[in-house]
Design a protein around this nucleic acid. Structure first.
Length: 263
DNA sequence: ATGGCTCGCTCCGCGAGA
């Protein structure tokens, strides 16, 4: 099974790029983030005409996730509430950042982790609280799906210093690279998940996002923040995980580029 | 350097992104 993740920064603006990429790269699952559109206005037809099923959880202007799949999914749900309950989740499902379904007995999840704004801002603490919910959510689903779980998405966290183009200070206050965010991610991975990309590639300078400003892509000033995390059965089975930088070269690209895992 | 691009918005300047 091939699973791709891609923060497209508006599916309507990026529609042709994404559909053309999918025709050239016929993956089984494409997880999208930052679709930035309500479900009623999601451009489903181009994907359906290409032979895909479309599952969406969107909102106006911000956030929004989708799963595009060759075979139908079962047990599709959105947000944390169906698993954790309304009391635990509170207002955290108002922002549409999580969609999941089951394919071939494997739990597939796509997430758009909050950006976090400035260091120690309200958005920063919202991000940490959201990651704590994600940890509780995955703790439950990993136990329910011993055959395999794959969580993919824009995590907005640089896991290690080699995953960003500049020198990281030990107590970095740069959102996405702070100790508290990395610790939150590590607590999640300790549940039994591993970074698929690092099974195959130990190089530095392997990025998935480049700022639109300052010619960051041309200067190779990027961050690796889009990830596939696999439970042990899938991690053992995984045969490749690659970053496809080709779409970042196109005219009017997303600032992120797709990452594809095969298992 | 609270900049630098690009997105959507009952749009023509602003908040958000990372």
């Amino acid at each position: 099974m091939k699973v791709a993740t891609w923060n497209v920064n508006s599916i309507r603006t990026r529609l042709d790029i994404v559909v053309n990429w999918l025709r050239e790269n016929p993956v089984d699952v494409l997880g999208l983030q930052e679709t930035k559109v309500i479900d009623e206005l999601f451009p489903r037809s181009p994907f359906e005409e290409a032979g895909y099923h479309v599952y969406v959880s969107g909102q106006k202007s911000y956030n929004g996730v989708a799963l595009i799949t060759r075979s139908p999914l079962s047990d599709v749900s959105t947000g944390f509430t169906p698993i954790l309950g309304a009391d635990r989740v509170g207002e955290f499902d108002e922002q549409k950042r999580l969609i999941t379904g089951v394919l071939d007995n494997i739990r597939i999840i796509t997430v758009y982790v909050p950006n976090g704004g400035d260091f120690e801002s309200d958005k920063y603490f919202y991000k940490l609280d959201w990651l704590s919910l994600l940890q509780d959510y995955l703790d439950i689903l990993l136990k329910r799906h011993p055959q395999g779980l794959c969580i993919s998405g824009d995590f907005n966290i640089v896991p290690e210093d080699r995953d960003v183009h500049f020198e990281v200070s030990p107590n970095s206050q740069k959102t996405g690279i702070t100790p508290k965010e990395r610790e939150a991610l590590q607590r999640i991975l300790k549940l039994g998940l591993a970074d698929a990309f690092r099974k195959f590639n130990q190089e530095e300078g392997q990025y998935t996002w480049w700022d639109y400003r300052q010619n960051s892509f041309k200067r190779q000033r990027g961050w690796r923040i889009d990830h596939h995390y696999l439970s042990a059965p899938l991690g053992d089975r995984a045969s490749s995980c690659i970053i496809d930088i080709a779409p970042r070269h196109l005219t009017k690209p997303s600032d992120h580029t797709p990452v594809i895992v095969e298992f």
